[in-house]
C-alpha cells in the first residue's frame, strides 16, 4: 500500500528516511546523510514540490490524512536538502561539520511547547 498520495510515487523510497517530525531532525538528517542520498531525494522531489504544495494547500492541516502528512514532512525536508545539493554542493561536508553545533529549538511547522 502506498504511503503517499497518488502522483507522488517517486518519493516513496524516501519516506522512511526523510518524513521527520521536527525541523531539528530534518536538519540533522541533511547533515548526517551521504551526498548520494541527498541527491537522490532532491532529484526525485524537486519538480514535484509545486504539485505537492498545491495539493496540500487545498485542506487545512487538521484535515490532512496520514499520506498527506507524510508528503508535507517530505516537502519540509526538501527545504533543508535543497540548501545542501543546490547551493552548498561540494562545500556541504565542510558546512555540515559546523552546522552540527546548531540546534533548532522551535519551528513554525513543529508542535512547540
Amino acid at each position: 500500500m502506498s504511503a503517499l498520495p497518488e502522483g507522488f510515487e517517486p518519493l516513496e523510497p524516501f519516506v522512511d528516511g526523510w518524513a521527520l517530525g521536527s525541523a531539528d531532525e530534518r536538519m540533522r538528517q541533511r547533515l548526517a546523510s551521504a551526498a548520494s542520498e541527498r541527491e537522490a531525494f532532491f532529484n526525485a522531489g524537486k519538480d514535484l514540490v509545486p504539485a505537492a504544495l498545491a495539493l496540500l494547500d487545498k485542506k487545512s492541516f487538521d484535515e490532512h490524512d496520514p499520506k498527506e502528512e507524510r508528503l508535507m514532512l517530505l516537502m519540509l525536508s526538501m527545504a533543508h536538502v535543497a540548501q545542501a545539493v543546490e547551493i552548498q554542493q561540494d562545500d556541504e561536508p565542510m558546512h555540515a561539520h559546523y552546522a552540527r553545533f546548531i540546534t533548532i529549538t522551535r519551528a513554525s511547522a513543529d508542535d512547540n511547547p
Partner: peptide, 27 residues
C-alpha cells in the same frame, strides 16, 4: 500561525537558508 502548506514550506526554507549562513561563521 502556518495557515497552509505553502506558507509552512516557505518558512522552513527561510529557516534553513538563515541557518546555513550562521553555521559557516562559527570556526
Amino acid at each position: 500561525e502556518d495557515d497552509c502548506a505553502s506558507r509552512r514550506f516557505a518558512r522552513e526554507f527561510s529557516l534553513a537558508t538563515a541557518l546555513d549562513i550562521h553555521s559557516e561563521d562559527r570556526a
